[in-house]
Amino acid sequence: SYALKRNPLIASLTDTKALEKVLKSDCNIIILIQSDICTLKDTVDRIRKTDKLIFVHLDLTKGLKRDASGVKFLSEFIGVDGIVTTHTNLIQVAKQYNLLTIQRIFILDTASIKQGIKSINSSKPDAVEILPGVVVPHIKKHLKSLSNQTIIAAGLVNSEDEIQHILKHGAQGVSSSSLNLME
């Protein structure tokens, strides 16, 4: 939460070729998306030299199983600060390893909003990442029941104007892989 107050933009890194640019950015949080277990430790070690928080999207990491051993591996051997996942059970496992947790939910319709809120109230992650992020202002009234969770908007957010609109209408952070927003 403090890191988002300093800068609400989160860098979602989908390609390690962009790592240097992200490391030089003002973002305080980096989410490693589509990382590879073979290069993950080196990437995390490079980020660790900064004061940025490091999250790994567990569901999208190549070579890493989405189970308790995968979470333990990220915590004890890789040294991440937290995980991103759609899996409620992995939120609980991550908490056992004192990792920060972001639960990702996809908003497709009213039913997915209700199911997402039910899932979040069950798992109680530190933050909720809502995709696509541009829907956050439209579902603001539904998000009021998530008063204890930090709301992060992600996906289809491509401009500074969109970021400001989303932050004014329900989100505390915006996650983007758009490098032009990192400048």
Rank of each mutant, 00 (worst) to 15 (best):
L64F: 00
L58R: 00
G70P: 07
T110Y: 10
K41A: 05
D36L: 12
A127N: 12
R104W: 09
V44N: 00
K118H: 11
I91Y: 05
L108A: 04
S119R: 01
G133Y: 07
I54L: 10
I139W: 07
V135I: 12
L99Y: 02
V128K: 07
H57P: 00
N98P: 03
L64S: 01
S75T: 00
H87P: 06
L58H: 11
E76V: 01
E129A: 04
K65S: 08
V80D: 12
S75R: 03
Q92V: 14
D126Q: 05
K124W: 08
D81C: 03
P125Y: 04
G63W: 09
S119D: 14
V44Q: 07
F77A: 15
L40T: 11
K62G: 13
S122E: 10
F73P: 04
S122M: 08
G116N: 03
I120G: 03
F73Q: 05
K114F: 11
S119N: 09
I37T: 11
G70L: 09
L74A: 04
D51C: 13
N121C: 09
R66W: 04
F73V: 04
F73D: 02
K52C: 03
V134H: 12
V84C: 05
V80N: 02
R104D: 04
I120W: 10
T43V: 07
S75G: 13
V134T: 15
N89V: 08
L99G: 02
I130F: 01
P137W: 00
P132W: 06
L100Q: 14
V93Q: 14
G116I: 06
V134E: 10
S119G: 03
A68W: 08
D36T: 09
G133N: 08
I130N: 07
S122R: 13
L99I: 00
G82T: 11
K49Y: 08
L60H: 07
P125V: 01
T110E: 13
C38W: 03
L40D: 09
Q92Y: 14
S75A: 03
V128G: 04
S69F: 06
I102V: 12
L131Q: 10
